[in-house]
Design a protein around this nucleic acid. Structure first.
Lengths: 333, 333
DNA sequence: CTCCTCGACTAGAGCGCTCTAGTATCGAGC
DNA sequence: GCTCGATACTAGAGCGCTCTAGTCGAGGAG
């Protein structure tokens, strides 16, 4: 149905120049006169020529490809992928996606990228054991985005979770809340730091640290935490909650409202992430915003500086979060 | 930091065989004795050799790569990507993802895939003009997944939206509802067919077709539709609603509940898609399930049959949806 | 003993680019 | 006139695989 795809050779013949010149024109490097450049591009357009990246990557010494492993369908990963694409373009790197899905484990996603000869790899919210990460890092520059790991050679780029929780607690404290509970994320990436941030913030304000409420990272986990919260004797019930993340907060808000408790009048709730849904007018979740743009940019820069600058490891990059006040928090009464 | 990556040549030398033999072993084709096979694999393992896919693809006549363009972060697209990965593996194709994000338009995502020399391309919920799709299809097998288009050469794989709405309306009718309103999806892919499915279903049951309520594909759109619905004079207010999709339904349910209307007692709501969140216990949305597995599988099969079987176009593939009854619908009273 | 067949293995020509080391041409400087 | 240095362009050797067309040797049939 379609004729053989034209190659550089065809374009060269049509433009009456050598293949090398066509290559020069398409790579945009110096060495071709303006007239020839135009002639070549015209010939290419006539033939519908498009350079073959496979061949180009094979012959180039550098592939300038950065692999990105992410959870397909994870809202926040999506925001990060957007930012990674943008940042890579700036540094003249190319992003190659490899998705993790229920049926496609992270190991396989990584293996696929290695076969492509990516020069570096960014793992978004990786769940790989740190030994596996260290092994990876021994082969090529490896950035763990979101997840904090101590693994030889692995660069970490993450949000300052503890600081985020400090801000959340301080915000609630400023509103007059004295009984604040944290809904925990369990073993999810970042959960430990948020937990710890909550505890130290509460302590510093001279409040009593309440036992954690078991939660998780989905709406369902949040709804379950709501059940636990509502079953507490009224006297022991907190007036404010910091949730592990936005989805968890959303589920919790939804469930307590259905039980007749008003938000924020009866309970103030703060999330974490600032996923898109959090900003919807009818939800208007007060939350701790993770700076997806900065996170993505720094992850790429980190990989690029290892590749280009030969700059050595360096300590984890920690991005400051920001409190976004919306409508799920209010004065204590 | 790392030595040069070993090549087939190195493995061959170490195993004391020719490069061709190593290739045979790694491709798993016949022509090597069991003993040699083991020797080669051992040598490869020693060196930490991994075949270079760029080179392999370049020399192979067929790349067996299928490009997939999808919306990063779209929950349902994520489900489809999972199924596409799985189906491609079965047909021995390789999936190459190219994400669409706020800053990376679909055109660019497609261009990237063409440069990779994908043999076929699957566009999930494409928003490209049909002329652009036809142009693409002239170059390589093109499947439009979810979106129904009439474009020369483009294979369409989609859910039977009209049938879905018929089921939704029939379900509500069976519960005694006589005043059912559809919250419209506007220009979103599939919206026209759902609209039309609603109208014909209502007509067939002898009910009056109410004017559509403008909605959209996000929770926010649903919440806005709720506002419009609540502002209707009580006598004109419907007792049941079919929403364009789950997210819209979720936003609507949330908003009407907050306004004091109980679901399903005061209003029954049916969504569309059956995204993961719909099944969460605290949400339990009655919805029309799109069969992501079948959709993905058929999309791959379609592309593969064009490529392998040379089977010609064929009519659009329409997948049956299924009603999933949960807790947002109840008997009219 | 010769002719065939068959399995195991190899040589070598690509695949479509990139990039180094050139050659040709031309104007300027002495 | 000759050299020099640019600038514009080309030849050709890879990059690391795949795959066709072989070679080689062992065994079976006649």
């Amino acid at each position: 149905m379609s004729a053989e795809r034209p190659t550089m050779e065809d374009v060269a013949a049509r433009a009456g120049v050598s293949r090398a010149l066509v290559s020069i024109v398409f790579r945009g490097t110096a060495g071709a006169s303006e007239r020839t450049r135009e002639r070549v591009l015209a010939a290419a357009a006539d033939l519908g020529y498009q350079p073959d990246r496979r061949a180009s990557r094979l012959s180039r010494t550098r592939t300038r490809m950065l692999g990105v492993v992410f959870g397909v369908g994870h809202a926040f990963h999506g925001d990060l992928v957007d930012s990674l694409y943008a940042a890579a373009a700036v540094s003249d790197y190319e992003v190659v996606l490899s998705g993790v899905t229920p049926r496609r484990p992270e190991e396989e996603a990584v293996r696929a990228l290695l076969g492509e000869r990516c020069e570096g790899i960014v793992l978004v919210g990786s769940a790989l054991p740190s030994t596996a990460l260290a092994e990876l890092a021994a082969r090529l520059p490896t950035v763990s985005l979101l997840r904090d790991v101590r693994a030889e050679g692995v660069d970490v780029v993450r949000t300052d979770e503890a600081e985020g929780l400090r801000q959340a607690v301080a915000h609630l404290h400023g509103l007059g809340h004295r009984h604040i509970v944290h809904v925990d994320g369990g073993r999810a990436p970042g959960a430990a730091r948020r937990r710890q941030g909550y505890r130290s913030a509460v302590r510093r304000l001279g409040l009593a640290a309440s036992p954690l409420l078991p939660g998780g990272l989905t709406e369902e986990d949040g709804a379950r935490a709501a059940g636990a919260l509502l079953s507490l004797p009224p006297g022991e019930r907190p007036t404010a909650v910091t949730a592990f993340n936005d989805r968890c907060a959303l589920g919790l808000v939804d469930a307590v409202r259905r039980a007749g408790l008003k938000v924020p009048e009866g309970l103030s709730v703060v999330g974490f992430d600032d996923i898109r849904a959090a900003s919807y007018a009818h939800i208007a979740l007060t939350t701790i915003r993770q700076d997806a743009d900065a996170l993505g940019r720094l992850a790429i820069e980190r990989a690029a500086s290892r590749l280009d600058g030969g700059r050595p490891p360096g300590s984890p990059v920690v991005v400051a979060p920001a409190l976004v006040v919306r409508a799920t928090t209010g004065a204590h009464r």
